[in-house]
Design a protein around this nucleic acid. Structure first.
Lengths: 242, 242
DNA sequence: CGAGCGTTTGATCACTGTCAACCGTGGTGG
DNA sequence: CCACCACGGTTGACAGTGATCAAACGCTCG
């Protein structure tokens, strides 16, 4: 078992750099400690490792501390559908709360650090900390909202619009985390993007070259730079293809 | 779905015929009364009326007692996207919890009876009734899961598969409510179905006639009968379109 | 009775999926 | 050390699904 260079016992919610983005939001300092006390494992996962798999017993939800992961399901015929890409501060496993098993796979896209929060303990704690309950409701409500947005994306929009919206969305999330919103590294493959957006890999590839020719974005491998935020947003949101 | 003549003051969670499907699930009889006490309005809405609209102040989530509604959003360019059709026992408004305003429209598709639950009071009550909190978590988690399923539907499947899955899904939900799972009335227009599934109206219409020729279903206007559950499920889930 | 809406059917077209080939990179084993 | 392969990515040719445009029907409602 590799312990990494990080002294895991040092990691505390109280001093975590992303606590503003995570469950502790709006919790009083004193209350954060209660939360920290129940966070069981703060573990390092190498690229490609699973945080959980469909069928595993559900026991905890997980906050991403660093790195990124993708969640996906596999349907009866074996096809895989990516349901989300997750960045630091985001919580995964929420869709398993109402069942005893995880329903999806969560796999890291790069080396990641994850904080796991046993759900039974979290549930008890929310009984004592109304602010924590509120935050948990907020997170879940937000997840529902995000998915409805994605849903809208998939059902209505053309390939260009989908991809533009995808990039805009990522950009906003990076920005929120204090990173650049105009240039960043994609952590997923073209294939993953295609799977997520309901497009063929080839289509994604062609889209990228096209948007590049239109000087909306600039890319090199996984690196992407948004050259024309305005134009891209317009493409993502409003394009009325008459 | 006829609601008949109802004395609204008589409606109580304790005696509600669908309490098993609604928030009171798993609550002790005594506790249900607490819930009932905070349910503010039990109002009748005529077909086409709004329960809430995007931009309205969020103050409550709503349980459908009878009838049905659709929720939808309107994007910048004015296009409308239906995000869900909702049956008795289902809760709407959950996606607004994390914001102060509703983000979507909720419109009845037929005369409906709705129980509104002020969210601040519900939040307080969940602090006292762990079972209620659990149930609310379950409902929200389930909503996330359902949407991921729909997401999968929209991103991966062909028109036939989408429609088949849609019918199967409706069938299961009717069945769960003690109604026939093999024949029922659709409460939405073809146009609504198309919007929801990301298909043109014409495509939906053609699908229906095709599936009818294949003797998988039988329809007349809004009435639909599933003739071959097996075949339809197979089409919905597993069809590998080589 | 006319207008509007929901539905169905037909004809056409384009977007995007599929198949195929190719390149570059990184990992593996002889 | 190099040959080989697997994998991610790009590009081209082609075909099919499903959108769009158009028209017609029945129904409800003012």
């Amino acid at each position: 078992m590799l312990s990494g260079r990080i002294n895991r016992s040092e990691i505390k919610c109280q001093t975590c750099s992303i606590k503003r983005l995570c469950l502790p939001v709006m919790l009083a300092e004193a209350d954060i400690q209660y939360l920290d006390n129940i966070v069981q494992r703060k573990k390092i996962l190498n690229k490609g490792e699973f945080l959980f798999q469909a069928g595993d017993d559900f026991d905890a939800i997980h906050a991403i501390r660093s790195g990124s992961l993708k969640t996906y399901t596999i349907s009866a015929d074996g096809t895989q559908q990516i349901t989300g890409f997750h960045l630091p501060g985001e919580i995964v496993g929420l869709n398993a709360i109402s069942s005893s098993k995880y329903l999806s796979f969560a796999k890291t896209m790069e080396t990641s650090l994850v904080c796991s929060i046993p759900f039974d303990k979290l549930e008890s704690l929310t009984q004592e900390l109304p602010g924590l309950q509120k935050q948990l409701f907020n997170v879940m409500s937000g997840e529902i909202r995000d998915e409805q947005e994605l849903l809208m994306l998939l059902s209505k929009k053309s390939a260009d619009e989908r991809f533009a919206a995808f990039v805009i969305n990522l950009s906003a999330r990076f920005k929120r985390r204090g990173l650049s919103g105009t240039e960043f590294q994609l952590m997923m493959t073209r294939s993953d993007i295609g799977n997520y957006l309901g497009l063929a890999v080839e289509t994604v590839s062609r889209l990228i070259t096209r948007l590049q020719k239109q000087e909306l974005i600039k890319t090199q491998d996984r690196y992407i730079e948004i050259l024309n935020q305005e134009g891209l947003s317009q493409l993502a949101g409003t394009a009325c293809h008459t």
